[in-house]
Design a protein around this nucleic acid. Structure first.
Lengths: 148, 148
DNA sequence: TATTGTTATACTCTATAACTATA
DNA sequence: TATAGTTATAGAGTATAACAATA
């Protein structure tokens, strides 16, 4: 078939856009945006409260943006700001009970979506898929992709 | 190894984000944003000037946004507004020489990047990759992904 | 002097609604 | 009455720079 590098790369974009659309819709229903949901997800995966500086690194965004995201989530009731026990400059961001519940739902929804979409794809194809994806990621991390 | 549906879906996101980062950087060097570059690309692929309404459909965005994008590109010198020959309400958006050159460069850069990243990936893996991707896209187009 | 988070400012993406000119 | 594009307005993502409190 048309298994050219160009076609494969285009698939990546198309896929990400479509899947993101679906997820974004589900998030909107819960009063969340993708960026804000990502904060909850990161906190959930980390398992403990995080300082905003850590969040800005994990999210690859500016401290300023973290301030805005946490402000919004605080109003949303899913996140809480606590004083850092030893460093009075820092702020600890923790999931509230509602936030933990939402993060748990996102976790479940992700798994459910993945299984619904890919559940009956042959394991061999899945493996090849992941292999190629990892290869691309390696290339991008190591050298540049030659896109300059 | 970890060829679970969850892992595969996560790869899609990671990939798209990283590749988009690289491309976005190259675009910024030319004074373009991804959304604006997409306008040039669509015009380039279409091969002829387009009415803004057509652009809004092709780009899946609002007419309002098209106005803003075309405004910016006009100032950027890559796009031109011409009166529609028969419908005086409509505006034809055409690539300027500079715009055509930029679109050509994007085309080349995309191909070059795809080859640089995936050029030596076995054709069999590439084919599996595309197969899985198409499968996901089908699922998303047909039913929902079960993400609700 | 360096770091954490904030305020100030700005640009971009994106959407809805109201309006103008034309069909 | 319907359509093409614009102005008006708004929320959200994202960035830089200046600044306050603290280390």
């Amino acid at each position: 078939m048309s298994s050219t590098p160009e076609a494969a790369l285009e698939k990546v974009f198309e896929l990400a856009a479509r899947v993101a659309d679906v997820m974004s819709g589900a998030l909107t229903d819960r009063g969340l945006t993708p960026a804000r949901a990502e904060v909850l997800f990161v906190l959930h995966q980390h398992g403990r409260p995080m300082v905003q500086r850590e969040l800005s690194q994990a999210l690859r965004c500016t401290p300023r943006h973290v301030t805005a995201l946490v402000d919004a989530l605080q109003q949303h009731g899913t996140v809480r700001r606590d004083p850092h026990p030893t460093d009075r400059r820092a702020t600890l961001v923790a999931l509230t009970d509602a936030g933990a519940a939402t993060a748990g739902w996102m976790d479940d929804a992700r798994r459910a979506a993945a299984r619904a979409i890919l559940g009956d794809v042959p394991a061999r194809d899945l493996a090849s898929f992941v292999t190629v994806a990892d290869r691309i990621l390696d290339r991008l991390a190591t050298g540049d992709g030659g896109a300059g």
